[in-house]
Every structure is written in structure tokens, then in C-alpha cells.
Design a protein around this nucleic acid. Structure first.
Lengths: 260, 260
DNA sequence: CGGATTTTTGAAAAGTGTCAAGGCGAGTGG
DNA sequence: CCACTCGCCTTGACACTTTTCAAAAATCCG
């Protein structure tokens, strides 16, 4: 990533440690999907059996190591993906390196839908946080499957709608919340995400570093760290290592998050 | 809008002047569309003639005065709209009144699509800046029309995609740009929007107040004003009154916007 | 023209970023 | 098994940007 020096660009999220590896091979591509079971595809997209029959012919499974790029801003967009295992980040960057992570994705999420027909290149970067398994579909074939199956089309539009709603929340957070409120909001969303998957909300394990959280919350890693410390002092959370967080007072956490 | 006092919520975007009127009648609803011509609907959604035939039966025209709410967060969402004339804002608020305007809309934009089937209530507030004309469609009928017409479906998904892309840009701006960069970005987007409509980019007329711009950029109105002044001092823009802006050096404006 | 609203500008305060040092934990090699 | 190294996290002190509070200037509109 080229770093261009401007007059006095705030350092903020400039990459402080070496960037991720981004070699020729971006992940191992297995043969047409033998590992992608109906259950997995169902996790992917909530598809019914018919949809699966339509899609199973065209999908591949990919396994990516941590800290690999699935694609970058500007790459040609030839595929759509659904995550089955692991977590990754979607981000946008300014020419001088400042980065904004728009979303953390996990099992069940689509990647690469934020493009209509004329847009042939990715507008953001997808990077793995952990080892990640994805199902990959050629864009065209996926679009055709979508037009043949009204339920699939609805599901995709519904996913897009939820992304727009989430983007609005994120904008409210970035534009109007204080540092502590942002950290609290972040933990709250992580907890709700756990619950949506049927997992307990409370002892949650973060797959991302303070720096990545900072790039998501529009803060610096130091401020994020101070946010965690503050919440700990207030008795709202407990930290067992940097990545294990127990939420001891959810009601108060909601208040501290801006009450929403 | 109820204002709840918390410990020490930063004032930021708290409404400083009286809120907008929000009476029983939110706009005059005319008879099934006589004023909505094919051309207008085409502006609305880029629809072809068949789509128009499908939709013309179910749409109404509404005319709204400036500073009226089309709907609010929490209102039941029964309709979808397209704007034919005027401008309005979409916003989200925290319980204590802090507000984030996620988008300014104008002719050709959809309103109310950010909801899937299960979501029956609006998650944001739509407020007119100027007099606004919209075409209104019952949600269900619009959804049915969408499933019958693949082009319409594609167009809606494409619109959703562009919104997601725009939301990403906005998040990058809110999370990572300085005050001056935000103001510059805002002007640049307004200019590009003009160009997209075939209008000249340069002498642009702002329909929104400094306070509304501030709520869009995640700043205070004072900081926005200082941003305009700074850009004027730098010779990048010229101001004829607060709402008429001439962009005298577009290249430099792009640099000042973060170079993107 | 005059009152109200909005915008601009100034000065002080607050919040967050920057720089710097030290700590903790995981993985490695002796 | 322990010491070492490396990366990440935490904490402190200070600087800087933006907010807050206040007042003057400009603009709008009857």
C-alpha cells in the first residue's frame, strides 16, 4: 500500500505494523464443493433445498489463513462469497493510509453484494481476522440463480436492507458518540451477534486487535484501550486477557452506549 | 421529540431551535396519479414503460412543505416513495437528541427501501428541506411489482448497492477525516450530484442549513462554518451568501477532501 | 425598516490524538 | 524448564483539534 505524505494528515489509523501478506495465491481453492454441505449453505444464506440445488453446481470452498486479503479495493469483482467459518473485516482507505473498517463479518454473511451490474470492481477490502472458510460463487451465475428464485432474491435484498440499517447505526456512532459510548456500543453489538447465533452473550471472545477495533470505531488504539479500562473501572465489564470480555451489567452498558 | 438528560451527554447536535411541525396531516395526498407523468416516474426510478404501467395504478403524488416529516423513526412503514422534486434528509437520533443525518436525498431517489419483509417500522426519519414532491406506493404492491419485473428488481437492488457504497464512504469520512476534509468532501459530493443531473458543478445552491450540514458531517455548526471560512481563505471556494458556493479550484478541493 | 434567525468569529474548555515507556503473554530456543 | 524475544496492550504526559459558550455580523422576511 503506497503511503503518500500530505501537508499534515492526522496519523490516526495509519498502519503501524507491517501490512498483511498479499501474495499471488490468496487462498486455497478446493474442488467444486464437496465440503459445502446443505447445512453450511443454509448457514450461509438461509437457503432452502431448491436454492441449494441451483447453487451447488457453481460454488467452491475456500479456506483462508488469518491476515490474508480475500480482495482489495480496485480488484475486479468476479465472485460473491458467503462465510461459513471465521471472521473478517471489510474496510475502506484513504490514499494516505487512514483506514475505516465498515463491518466485521462472520458465518452467514454475504460478501461482494455491494455492487450492481455496472460496477465491476471492488470498492472495499476484505481481510481475514481468523482462519476463514467461504463459499465462492461466480457473480453472473449467482445473479441468474437470484432471478430464478424469488426467495433467494428476497433474502439477498433483505440482507442488503439489514446492511443499510447497520450502516446507519454505524454512522450515528461515528458522527455523534463519545469514545466510551463507541466502545460500549461495539461490545453490545458483539454480544447481540452472539445471541443471534444462539450462543450466550456474555463471555465473548474478540477476534480483532485494539487497532482493528479502533479503525472500526473511528478512534486510535490507545483511546479504545482506555475505553475498555474505563468500562472495567465502572464495573460494567471484566477482562480476562485482552480478548476475553465478560459483560457484568448489560443494562448499564446499554446506557453507556448512548441508550439505544 | 422527548429530550432525556443523561449524566453529561455532549451537546453536539442537540436541536437548538424549535423542531419541525409534525401534525396529523403530513402532506397533501392527491388522487391516484394524474400529475405523475411517465417522465416523472422515469426520473423516479429509471423505469421503462411496462414498469410504469404496472405501477401507475397504485401510486399517488404527495406535495410536502419545507420542514415537514414524511415519517419518523418508529412509524409503521406502509409505503415506498420516490422523489420527483425537492430535497430531504434521512436521519437517525439518539435518545438524548443527538442526530446523525445519513443522507440528503433528491429527485430520482427511493425512500423506504431500507426495510425487509419482517421490518414493519421505519428506522429513520425523513424530513423535507424544501418543498418536496414524491410518488407514493403501497409497500406490498411495490414488492409484487418488483417480483414481476426483473428490470425493476435489478434497479432496486442496484439502488441499494449504491446506498451501501455511499454509506461506506460516509463512514470513512466520519471516522477518519478532519473537519476541513469533511466540509470539502461534502461540497465535492454536492458538485458531483449536480453533474450527474447534467447541471454545472460549480455555482451550487445548498438547500440545508449549517446545522443540518453539521449533523451530516458529525461536527458542530460552528466547526462547519469555520470549515467554509477556511476554504474561502484558501481560495478554493467563493461564498455569495451562506447558501451559494462557487468552487474555484476543484483539483485543490479534491486534495483538501482527503484525495479520494 | 426592524425583529428574528442564521452565520460568522473569538476565547476558553474538553476530549481525543500523539509520543513514549513499561507490562503482559505467547511462542521459541537454549 | 526457563529466559528471551516479539507483538500487542496499557498507562501517562502533553499537544492539538474540535466543542462549548458568548457575542457580533449578516441575512431573511414581514
Amino acid at each position: 500500500m503506497t503511503v503518500v505524505a500530505f501537508e499534515s494528515p492526522p496519523r490516526h489509523s495509519t498502519v503501524r505494523s507491517a501490512g498483511p501478506v498479499h501474495g499471488q495465491v490468496r487462498g486455497a481453492v478446493s474442488d467444486p464443493c464437496t465440503t459445502c454441505t446443505v447445512r453450511q449453505l443454509s448457514i450461509c444464506a438461509g437457503l432452502d433445498h431448491d436454492d441449494w440445488n441451483r447453487l451447488k453446481q457453481i460454488n467452491h470452498t475456500m479456506v483462508l489463513e488469518p491476515h490474508r486479503l480475500l480482495f482489495q479495493e480496485g480488484d475486479p469483482a468476479e465472485h460473491v462469497y458467503t462465510v461459513t467459518t471465521g471472521q473478517l473485516s471489510l474496510s475502506l482507505s484513504l490514499p494516505d493510509g487512514r483506514r475505516q473498517i465498515t463491518e466485521f463479518l462472520g458465518p452467514g454473511d454475504f460478501i461482494g453484494l455491494g455492487l450492481d451490474g455496472d460496477m465491476t470492481h471492488h470498492i472495499l477490502t476484505a481481510e481475514t481476522l481468523t482462519e476463514v472458510h467461504v463459499c465462492r460463487f461466480p457473480r453472473g451465475a449467482f445473479a441468474r440463480a437470484m432471478e430464478q428464485s424469488a426467495p433467494l432474491g428476497r433474502r439477498v435484498l433483505s440482507f442488503a436492507s439489514r446492511r443499510i440499517a447497520a450502516a446507519g447505526e454505524q454512522q450515528l456512532m461515528l458522527g455523534r458518540k463519545t469514545a466510551v459510548e463507541r466502545v460500549a456500543s461495539f461490545l453490545l453489538r458483539a454480544a447481540r451477534r452472539n445471541e443471534d447465533r444462539g450462543a450466550p452473550a456474555s463471555p465473548l471472545t474478540l477476534a480483532m486487535t485494539r487497532n482493528e477495533i479502533a479503525d472500526h470505531l473511528g478512534l486510535t488504539l490507545e483511546t479504545v484501550s482506555r475505553g475498555f479500562s474505563r468500562l472495567r473501572q465502572l464495573g460494567v465489564i471484566r477482562l480476562d486477557g485482552a480478548d476475553r470480555v465478560t459483560l457484568s451489567d448489560l443494562g448499564r452498558l446499554v446506557e453507556l452506549a448512548g441508550g439505544d
